[in-house]
C-alpha cells in the first residue's frame, strides 16, 4: 500500500511538471502586445526593452529552465501586470485563506445537508420526500446560478438586515455567500447519492439482506449508503477545487477578496508569472485531490484494486 502511495505521489510530480510546462508554453503563445499597457504609445526601443525585461527574448527552453530554476528556490517571480513588481506569493498569500475558508464551509454545509437529503430521497423513493427533494434539485439545476445568486443577495440581505457587500467584521456576513455556494453542491450530492442508492437497492445483496430480515434503516445505512457513497468519494477532493474556482460569481457579487476570479483576471491581463503561480497552486491541489480520491475509493471498497497485482489478464 505504502509503495503504491509513494508511486502515485511520484507520478503526481510528473503530472505537475507536464501541466506547468504546457501552461508556460501556452501563455507564451499570446500576442506580445498584451504585455504593454498602451502599446501604440511606446517606442520600438521601449517594446524591445520591455520584452527583454520580461525575459521573453530568450528561446523557450531557456525561459522554461529559468522558471524551474527559480521555482526550486521557491521564487514564483513578480507579478507583471496585475500588480506590477509585487511578488506573486505576496499577492496570493492573503487570498488563499479566504477562498479555502469559503470553500470548506460551503462543502461541509453541502455534505451536511446534501447526503441526508439524498438518503432520504432514496429511502422514500416515489413518495413525498423524494418529490420535494427532486423539486429542489430541479430548481437549483434549472435556474442559472448567476440569477439565483443575485436574487439571494438582493433579497437575503434585505431580509437579514445586512449590507449588500461582504463585511469581514460580521460573522453574519458569511451566511449568504456560504449558503449560496453550497446550494449547487447540495443538489449535486443529493442527486447522485439518490441515483447510486437506487441503483444499489436493486442489487442481489440487498435482496438477500432483506430476505435475511435486516431492518430498513440498518440496510439503508450499513449496506446501501456505503456502497453508493463509493463512486462519489472520488470526486470529493475535486469538488473542493471546483468550488473554489467556481466562487467567481459569489466573490464578485459580495466583494469577497478570494481567488475566484483571479485566474480569469490574470489570464486576460497576460500576467504570465501570476498565471503560473495560480495554475501551480490549483494543479497541486487538483493532483493531490485525485490521488486522495483514488485512495479513498480503494480504501472504502475492498473489491476495487488499482495495482496490477491481482486480477491481471
Amino acid at each position: 500500500m505504502l509503495k503504491y502511495i509513494s508511486k502515485r505521489l511520484l507520478r503526481s510530480f510528473l503530472t505537475l511538471f507536464i501541466i506547468m510546462s504546457i501552461t508556460f508554453i501556452l501563455m507564451r503563445q499570446m500576442p506580445i502586445e498584451g504585455y504593454f499597457q498602451n502599446y501604440d504609445k511606446l517606442s520600438e526601443a521601449q517594446i524591445q526593452n520591455g520584452i527583454r525585461m520580461l525575459g521573453l527574448d530568450k528561446p523557450m527552453p531557456v525561459q522554461l529552465f529559468n522558471f524551474y530554476k527559480n521555482l526550486l528556490k521557491g521564487d514564483l517571480g513578480m507579478s507583471l501586470r496585475y500588480r506590477n513588481n509585487v511578488p506573486v506569493t505576496e499577492i496570493l498569500a492573503p487570498k488563499i485563506p479566504v477562498s479555502v475558508r469559503l470553500g470548506v464551509m460551503a462543502i461541509l454545509l453541502a455534505l451536511i445537508l446534501g447526503l441526508p437529503l439524498g438518503t432520504l430521497m432514496a429511502r422514500y423513493k416515489g413518495k413525498l420526500p423524494d418529490h420535494l427533494g427532486t423539486a429542489f434539485i430541479v430548481f437549483i439545476q434549472a435556474v442559472p446560478a448567476a440569477v439565483y445568486y443575485l436574487f439571494l443577495q438582493l433579497y437575503g440581505t434585505e431580509l437579514l438586515g445586512l449590507g449588500l457587500l461582504f463585511d469581514p467584521d460580521k460573522w453574519t456576513a458569511w451566511i449568504l455567500p456560504v449558503f449560496s455556494m453550497s446550494l449547487g453542491n447540495i443538489a449535486y450530492y443529493a442527486m447522485w447519492l439518490r441515483r447510486f442508492m437506487v441503483d444499489q437497492s436493486t442489487k442481489d445483496y440487498v435482496q438477500l439482506a432483506k430476505i435475511k430480515g435486516v431492518s430498513g434503516s440498518k440496510l439503508m445505512f450499513r449496506h446501501i449508503f456505503r456502497n453508493a457513497f463509493v463512486p462519489m468519494v472520488q470526486y470529493l477532493p475535486a469538488t473542493f477545487l471546483n468550488t473554489v474556482i467556481g466562487s467567481i460569481y459569489i466573490e464578485s457579487l459580495y466583494s469577497i477578496p478570494g481567488m475566484g476570479g483571479l485566474l480569469v483576471d490574470v489570464i486576460k491581463k497576460q500576467d504570465n508569472t501570476m498565471v503560473q503561480g495560480i495554475v501551480l497552486l490549483f494543479a497541486t491541489v487538483g493532483v493531490i485531490g485525485l490521488v486522495l480520491g483514488d485512495l479513498l475509493m480503494v480504501v472504502l471498497d475492498p473489491r476495487i484494486s488499482f495495482g496490477a497485482k491481482r486480477g491481471n489478464r
Partner: peptide, 10 residues
C-alpha cells in the same frame, strides 16, 4: 529611463 517603461514618456 527606458527600464521603467513609462507609457507617458512621449
Amino acid at each position: 529611463t527606458p527600464e521603467y517603461e513609462s507609457s507617458t514618456f512621449y
